[in-house]
Simulated assay, not measured.
Amino acid sequence: MLPTTVIAILLFFVIQAQMESASPTADLIQPLPTNESYTEQEETTEYIEDTTIYVEVKGAVHKPGVYELSEGNRVLTAIELAGGYLPSSNSKNINHAQRVEDEMVIYVPIEGEEVEELSSSPDQKSNLVNINKAEVAMLTTLPGIGPAKADAIIAYREDVGGFKEKQDLMKVTGIGQKTFEKLEPLITVK
């Protein structure tokens, strides 16, 4: 029994030594060169929303005029761009914290001038964009609507005779459910 065990152990070491010294017989796998002409490149277009707006400041300021602002700026910023108030101005009814909107007019009266007092919380309906009447400039103020989609909205309403309900906006090419969900609280058809 002992000689068989010794022979088995010797055979094990001999076989193991041969396996370690043997070179691999498999050929190395070379990667195939890729032909770029067959690879389809996915073209992506990144949408950059234009956040530039224009506000007109009139009345008792040093430099009345139209000023370029960014979306989210406040009335105070527009008045500062207009050089600030004249000594004769009356700014007590101006909401300096209100966010400015494109095409907004800020009028600063002089002391003693009677002006209609503006509500500090404007009616939500007045801020809605009427998709049956709005032109390209107003439509492009909506999120996700650039000049091309604004033109498509106008073309659709001219072809069909107007939008009967807000959901009809999804019939315009390029406006799907997700875009409509963002636009719905911002638009009207009246």
Results as ranks from 00 to 15, higher is better:
Gly83Trp: 06
Glu113Leu: 14
Glu103Gln: 12
Ile94Lys: 10
Arg99Thr: 12
Asn95His: 10
Gly84His: 06
His96Ser: 12
Tyr85Gly: 03
His96Phe: 13
Val108Trp: 01
Glu111Thr: 11
Asn93Leu: 11
His96Leu: 14
Val100Ser: 00
Met104Ala: 02
Pro109Asn: 15
Glu117Val: 12
Pro87Met: 04
Ala97Asn: 08
Val105Leu: 10
Asp102Cys: 08
Leu81Pro: 04
Arg99Glu: 12
Glu117Tyr: 10
Glu116Thr: 14
Leu86His: 05
Arg99Ala: 14
Asn95Tyr: 08
Asn95Met: 10
Ser89Trp: 02
His96Glu: 13
Asn90Cys: 05
Asp102Arg: 08
Gly84Met: 08
Val108Pro: 00
Glu114Gln: 15
Pro109Glu: 14
Val108Arg: 01
Ile110Trp: 11
Asn93Lys: 10
Met104Asp: 04
Gly112Ile: 12
Val100Trp: 03
Glu111Val: 12
Glu101Cys: 09
Ser91Lys: 03
Lys92Val: 13
Gly112Tyr: 13
Leu81Ser: 06
Ala82Leu: 07
Leu86Glu: 11
Val105Gly: 03
Ile106Met: 00
Glu80Cys: 01
Asp102Glu: 04
Met104Gly: 00
Gly84Trp: 11
Pro109Lys: 15
Tyr107Arg: 01
Asn90Gln: 08
Arg99Leu: 13
Glu101Asn: 15
Ser88Trp: 05
Pro87Asp: 06
Asn90Arg: 02
Asn90Ser: 02
His96Val: 01
Lys92Pro: 00
Met104Tyr: 01
Val115Tyr: 04
Gly84Thr: 04
Leu81Thr: 08
Glu116Trp: 11
Met104Leu: 01
Ser89Glu: 07
Val115Leu: 00
Gly84Phe: 09
Glu114Met: 12
Glu117Phe: 08
Gly112Thr: 15
Met104Glu: 00
His96Arg: 12
Val105Trp: 09
Gly112Asp: 13
Ala97Lys: 13
Asp102Thr: 03
Ala97Gln: 08
Val100Thr: 02
Asn93His: 06
Glu117Lys: 13
Asp102Gln: 05
Ile106Tyr: 01
Gly112Pro: 07
Gly84Lys: 04
Tyr85Trp: 06
His96Ala: 06
Ser91Leu: 10
Tyr107Val: 07
Gly84Glu: 07
His96Pro: 02
Gln98Thr: 11
Glu114Phe: 14
Gly112Asn: 14
His96Thr: 08
Glu111Trp: 06
Asn90Leu: 03
